[in-house]
Design a protein around this nucleic acid. Structure first.
Lengths: 146, 146
DNA sequence: TTAAAAAAGCAACATAGTTGCAAATGAAAA
DNA sequence: TTTTCATTTGCAACTATGTTGCTTTTTTAA
């Protein structure tokens, strides 16, 4: 049973990499694993800590950059200088992230979630400004912490 | 005339510091000057470059932290690990930032503006989540660049 | 199996942020 | 004004974070 599950996840990872024309390497598999085996977003530091024991720091940086370029993961803006990354739902191929969900940061467990069902609202801007992309980050208490 | 204006701004700065129970020092005056003499937000790097010629890096870090704690300036979240700071409109005293405006980043001039007249929208969250604060950052072209 | 291309690792470097402590400055009282 | 005390600054040293060039290793595809 766990064998089966792990085969599935391996296949899923391999497929994801192949679909994006990326060669299948240990570090890429490991880092995708980290994202797939948990709900929330990961801060760069987390990823480096968990993956960095096995891989060079530089490799982690380059792998994350590659994933962002390919649209496999996206960054979440924060006010505290710690980039957070999360898996894209799907089809953000070619570096175009068309996702329009909002992000939620729980200040109790400090997790960051993509609320895929909550769409970013229309924002009415003053005359002269034109919007291209709207980013919404809500902070509060998540459903696991209340 | 410029003399008069500079007296005014000096008074304004002194008043701002006094109201927040901060002693009036050269670095604090200089950094507040930077904020007052321009529209947009300032990235930490900008501040360090412009103020740091006269002051130690550490002083800049500490001064900005003090201003955030007192509610004189606020941070603006970004996805690129470069904290931006902007003056609070007013009355964000005691570290409580009650402002609810949105932020706009122009990707042509790369300036960040506080759109004080645009209020953050209500966001309807999934069951179990409770919001405390909503942060909206819009990117696009500003009125000076179009 | 092998050759070319891609990625990883390493080293060295650059930038960003923090901490403790001594010297300088500011505020307020004498 | 001068003195005193608390606050702030600057310095040095350090940690953390991010980048670049180059060599070695791994992956892919012939």
């Amino acid at each position: 049973m766990p064998k089966q599950a792990s085969v599935n996840i391996e296949n899923r990872i391999a497929g994801l990499l192949k679909r994006n024309n990326l060669s299948i390497t240990d570090s890429r598999k490991k880092i995708l694993h980290l994202f797939l085996e948990q709900t929330g977003a990961l801060a760069h530091g987390d990823i480096e800590k968990r993956a960095g024991e096995k891989f060079d720091r530089v490799t982690v940086y380059r792998t994350l950059q590659t994933f962002v370029d390919k649209g496999i993961i996206h960054t979440i803006p924060t006010a505290d200088n710690s980039i957070r990354y999360a898996l894209c739902k799907d089809e953000c191929a070619g570096g175009h992230h068309h996702d329009h969900h909002i992000h939620f940061v729980c200040h109790k467990c400090n997790n960051t979630y993509c609320l895929d069902d909550v769409v970013t609202p229309e924002i009415k801007l003053p005359k002269g400004y034109s919007a291209e992309h709207v980013e919404v980050v809500v902070d509060g208490i998540c459903k696991n912490c209340r």
